[in-house]
Computed example of a mutant assay.
Amino acid sequence: MFRTNAQKRRLIFLAAPAAALAISLAGCSSPAGSPAGGSGSSSIAAVIKGLDNPFFQAMQDGITDTASTDGVNVSVQAAADTADTTGQADKLTTLAGQDMGCFIINPISGTNLVQALAPIAAKGTPVVNIDQPLDADAASA
């Protein structure tokens, strides 16, 4: 079937988040299918950017659809908007206190989730960082 450039871009726009999230969920599992590291919980937490952007709406849909298909329990939390760095960090802090086998993060900035990740890293729970990398210097500090 012949597709216009606009149709191709739209298809890529919708398919890219789903593909990335499938890879992310795979990163949260060990080869045997059980969660890697962490507490042994089969639950995954995802903290993403604001749903005021259609890309992140598609990301949320990709996470929940992939988790449902794979039989994984997932809690997806989103910032109020794509500038809500404090709100996003608060959501991750709340989830960090729960029994999760893995965390998927989509930080608004390179530093806004670093402090909330400290207790997660201390437990040895795997973290999959998508879209926006963490600032390496801030993370190591």
Score class of each variant (00 low, 15 high):
residue 122 A to E: 12
residue 110 G to S: 01
residue 42 S to T: 08
residue 5 N to Y: 14
residue 139 A to G: 09
residue 24 S to A: 15
residue 30 S to N: 14
residue 107 P to N: 12
residue 48 I to R: 00
residue 96 A to H: 04
residue 52 D to S: 05
residue 88 Q to M: 10
residue 20 A to K: 11
residue 124 G to R: 00
residue 91 K to C: 12
residue 121 A to E: 09
residue 119 P to W: 06
residue 16 A to S: 14
residue 109 S to Y: 02
residue 102 C to E: 04
residue 109 S to C: 05
residue 46 A to L: 09
residue 85 T to N: 13
residue 137 D to M: 05
residue 33 G to T: 04
residue 79 A to G: 05
residue 93 T to Q: 12
residue 12 I to F: 14
residue 13 F to E: 15
residue 52 D to H: 06
residue 72 V to G: 02
residue 8 K to Q: 13
residue 61 D to Y: 06
residue 107 P to E: 07
residue 40 G to Y: 08
residue 34 S to K: 11
residue 66 T to E: 10
residue 68 S to A: 13
residue 90 D to P: 02
residue 131 D to E: 08
residue 98 Q to S: 06
residue 95 L to T: 06
residue 53 N to Y: 01
residue 49 K to D: 04
residue 112 N to V: 03
residue 2 F to S: 12
residue 54 P to F: 12
residue 22 A to M: 07
residue 46 A to T: 04
residue 112 N to L: 03
residue 136 A to Y: 06
residue 88 Q to D: 11
residue 74 V to L: 13
residue 36 A to W: 01
residue 114 V to P: 04
residue 18 A to E: 13
residue 114 V to I: 13
residue 87 G to V: 12
residue 25 L to G: 00
residue 61 D to H: 04
residue 140 S to D: 13
residue 75 S to M: 08
residue 95 L to V: 11
residue 50 G to C: 09
residue 124 G to M: 08
residue 19 A to C: 10
residue 59 M to T: 11
residue 127 V to M: 04
residue 137 D to R: 12
residue 58 A to F: 10
residue 140 S to P: 08
residue 3 R to Y: 13
residue 66 T to H: 02
residue 78 A to H: 00
residue 45 A to L: 05
residue 126 P to L: 03
residue 128 V to L: 04
residue 115 Q to L: 11
residue 86 T to Q: 15
residue 32 A to Y: 03
residue 5 N to E: 15
residue 27 G to N: 12
